[in-house]
């Protein structure tokens, strides 16, 4: 790890005033929340921030509900706490399931929701600090495209980068039209969550729209009543503590067997948290059968760009969507409500 300047602000305002500008590829100063991504990458020298601004003392660690039912979720709420919060667990299980199926209990106890959506890719060529990687070292090339790319993305890729977004919760959060609240030297702003991440295109080093000193302070979202019919399918090689090879976050508003509204998020297959809007539109008004569920999955992967070792993610992702839809449709919510 490179030496860095450690800063400990008392509150969020101080934090944004204190942080060194981040610059490209995360090589500027950085905020330290749970640290489970950045300390890992600093040990590898993949990121070498000259300073860390520790958010430990800044609060922002509550989930609160406003009078209109809007949830305000602090950025420093841990994954563990959020996974068990009744607002998620009971009203939008997908938001809980995507958390407890991620990482390990130890990591979830410190990793925060603010950091979680900014989790960096697990692309091995990004992490090895040696291979050409346009994300780590802009303009150097992409070793992943012709390499061992089993884990990497098939959606949202570019000729510069196929690094997958490795997180889970963001793929669920994206279903609920959440708003990201930020603070920076210029004040603060609200960003639709779906606009937070940017596709790699020609600049994979840039992953979000956040400014150099911009801090995520929390999220606002309204969970519709029907979101109780939601779940997270996470397909992975082993049964726990593994990244998704494909995941599907699904929430369904059903009228009998007919889909009033479907929302589908994808993980493990895309360069950014991914909303499968065309598949959602296709399902709207359809009766949900295995056939329509599979068709929705196919639509979700229209335009997917597979590579040598990850072509299976296209049928896998399709099937994960179908499974998610069918499982969600068959949830017995009346039975749960009685518990």
């Amino acid at each position: 790890m490179r030496p860095f300047n450690y800063q400990r602000p008392a509150n969020a305002e101080e934090a944004v005033a204190m942080v060194d500008p981040m610059g490209v590829a995360g090589q500027g100063g950085a905020f330290l929340a749970g640290g489970t991504t950045i300390i890992d990458l600093m040990k590898l020298h993949v990121v070498t921030p000259p300073s860390l601004t520790d958010l430990g003392p800044v609060g922002l660690d509550e989930i609160e509900e406003g009078n209109d039912g809007t949830l305000h979720v602090g950025a420093r709420v841990t994954m563990a706490k959020a996974a068990e919060h009744p607002a998620f667990r009971d009203r939008a299980p997908v938001l809980s399931e995507a958390l407890w199926k991620a990482a390990s209990a130890q990591l979830r106890n410190v990793a925060t929701l603010g950091g979680n959506v900014l989790q960096r890719t697990r692309c091995p060529y990004f992490r090895d600090n040696v291979s050409p990687c346009n994300k780590r070292d802009p303009g150097s090339g992409c070793a992943a495209i012709g390499g061992i790319n089993r884990l990497l993305a098939v959606l949202g890729t570019s000729e510069q980068c196929i690094a997958n977004y490795a997180g889970d919760w963001a793929n669920a959060l994206i279903l609920f039209d959440a708003t990201v609240e930020t603070m920076s030297g210029d004040g603060g702003r609200e960003i639709p969550f779906a606009d937070l991440h940017v596709l790699p295109e020609d600049h994979p080093e840039r992953e979000t729209v956040l400014g150099d000193d911009e801090l995520i302070t929390g999220y606002r979202l309204k969970i519709p009543g029907w979101a109780r019919r939601s779940l997270y399918v996470k397909a992975r090689d082993r049964d726990s503590y593994a990244f998704a090879l494909a995941s599907a976050a699904v929430a369904l508003d059903m009228d009998g067997d007919t889909v009033r509204e479907a929302r589908i998020g994808l993980g493990g297959v895309a360069t950014v948290p991914w909303r499968a809007r065309e598949a959602e539109e296709f399902l709207s008004g359809q009766s949900l059968t295995e056939e329509t569920a599979m068709r929705a999955g196919e639509i979700a992967f229209d335009g997917a760009q597979p590579y040598e070792h990850n072509a299976f993610k296209v049928p896998l992702g399709r099937n994960a969507v179908a499974k998610g839809l069918l499982d969600a449709a068959s949830l017995d919510l009346a039975g749960e409500a009685q518990q």
């Binding site: 330290l32 300390i39 430990g56 130890q106 410190v110």
Partner: peptide, 15 residues
Amino acid sequence: GVRINSCLMLAAAAD
């Protein structure tokens, strides 16, 4: 009282 991975926690952050 909460379990964590001590390899990823800076001592400074645990002050």
